[in-house]
Simulated assay, not measured.
Amino acid sequence: MRFGLTAEQTAFAASLHDLLSTTDDWPKLAELGVTALGIPEKHDGLGASPVDLVVAFEALGHHGVPGPWTDTVAVLPALLDDPVLASVASGETRASVVFAPHVPYALDADTADLRVLVDGKRLRTFTPGASLSSVDPSRRLFEVVPGEDLGPALDPARAFDLGVLATAAQLLGAGNWLLSTSVAYAGQRRQYGREIGKYQAVKHLLADVVTALELARPLLHGAAVTLAPEDVSAAKVACGDAALLAARTGLQVHGAIGYTAEHPLGRRLLRVRALTTAWGTAAVHRRRVLAAVG
């Protein structure tokens, strides 16, 4: 099967990158249709496909956009069929979703308009408890105090896989940002009278990152087409491994400056560390793949 993005999806990605190069404002992204992607048309959404979600979340990951995007845009529409989704589509409502055991803490629950706890096949409200520290300072996590029952969940299995898929797409986007930043820096930083990007060893390091990212991309897009659990898990592992390789290589290329809080590389490294364990660790997803093929 030969997979390629449509002209509309390519144009959408370009529009997102243009916008995100100047702002990551939630209302501006809502105007572009990001918040309406997963919402059915009957609730004023776009009824977009998982591939469209992947396109959007790769751009969000590339630019390091903070906020509960996965919870609100990818996961929530698969959990309930309710008029509140219209306000999600318009960008007025943001959600925080807890999906134990793999998502035990609530992201940005203190500012979320809608808080949903997936309890088996049912939904419950929750209130945020104690705040927790995250390896990524932009991710504000909270313990959960369960509340009242909201009724049955629409499709919790699909919701979880969409959360995993969106996280994998963000990792791929972050990995590509790290690669492009490292390539640019390697063309500027000079040692022994020449740019370090001209040394064969550095070229090999960067080439390994290119290979890992390009091999992860078809797994991600294929998983968006099939939405089979084993495909989604394989994509999460591949995108996570590729992003971590891009992070390690970025540090090698940048040297000590990459560790500083002032440099954007350091912030992106922390985001990758956090996302690799979000919505299931690599071990969890490797077990899902093994169970499927075994």
Rank of each mutant, 00 (worst) to 15 (best):
residue 275 L to I: 01
residue 292 A to Y: 06
residue 2 R to P: 13
residue 287 R to V: 00
residue 175 G to Y: 02
residue 214 E to A: 13
residue 40 P to Q: 04
residue 201 A to W: 03
residue 153 A to T: 02
residue 250 G to S: 13
residue 82 D to Q: 04
residue 141 L to E: 09
residue 282 A to D: 11
residue 226 T to M: 08
residue 175 G to C: 05
residue 110 D to S: 15
residue 114 L to Y: 03
residue 114 L to N: 11
residue 179 L to G: 05
residue 43 H to W: 12
residue 19 L to S: 09
residue 102 H to Y: 10
residue 34 V to S: 09
residue 271 R to E: 12
residue 257 I to F: 02
residue 33 G to T: 05
residue 10 T to S: 14
residue 43 H to K: 00
residue 256 A to D: 10
residue 188 Q to I: 00
residue 177 W to C: 01
residue 10 T to H: 12
residue 260 T to P: 01
residue 253 V to P: 02
residue 264 P to W: 04
residue 256 A to N: 13
residue 171 L to K: 02
residue 218 P to T: 08
residue 102 H to C: 07
residue 146 P to K: 13
residue 67 G to D: 04
residue 171 L to C: 13
residue 85 L to K: 03
residue 198 K to L: 12
residue 110 D to K: 15
residue 272 V to R: 06
residue 167 T to R: 07
residue 225 V to I: 11
residue 4 G to D: 14
residue 284 V to A: 14
residue 53 L to C: 09
residue 168 A to N: 12
residue 243 A to N: 05
residue 196 I to V: 11
residue 115 R to I: 01
residue 217 R to S: 07
residue 107 L to V: 07
residue 39 I to L: 05
residue 37 L to F: 07
residue 90 S to M: 01
residue 45 G to V: 01
residue 233 S to W: 05
residue 177 W to E: 06
residue 181 T to C: 09
residue 279 W to D: 10
residue 31 E to P: 10
residue 226 T to H: 12
residue 241 D to G: 08
residue 262 E to F: 02
residue 200 Q to R: 15
residue 41 E to F: 00
residue 135 V to H: 08
residue 17 H to G: 09
residue 82 D to A: 08
residue 194 R to T: 14
residue 129 G to M: 02
residue 146 P to Y: 06
residue 186 A to W: 01
residue 24 D to Y: 09
residue 289 V to Y: 07
residue 106 A to C: 11
residue 195 E to L: 03
residue 158 R to C: 09
residue 44 D to C: 02
residue 14 A to T: 10
residue 43 H to N: 03
residue 239 C to R: 05
residue 160 F to C: 07
residue 163 G to R: 06
residue 216 A to M: 08
residue 201 A to Y: 11
residue 183 V to E: 15
residue 280 G to R: 01
residue 106 A to Y: 00
residue 103 V to S: 05
residue 68 P to L: 04
residue 234 A to K: 06
residue 113 D to N: 15
residue 28 K to N: 11
residue 139 R to V: 10
residue 212 A to Y: 07
residue 262 E to Q: 13
residue 245 L to T: 00
residue 59 A to G: 06
residue 15 S to H: 13
residue 1 M to L: 10
residue 178 L to V: 04
residue 200 Q to N: 11
residue 180 S to A: 14
residue 248 R to E: 12
residue 263 H to D: 14
residue 287 R to G: 09
residue 236 K to Q: 12
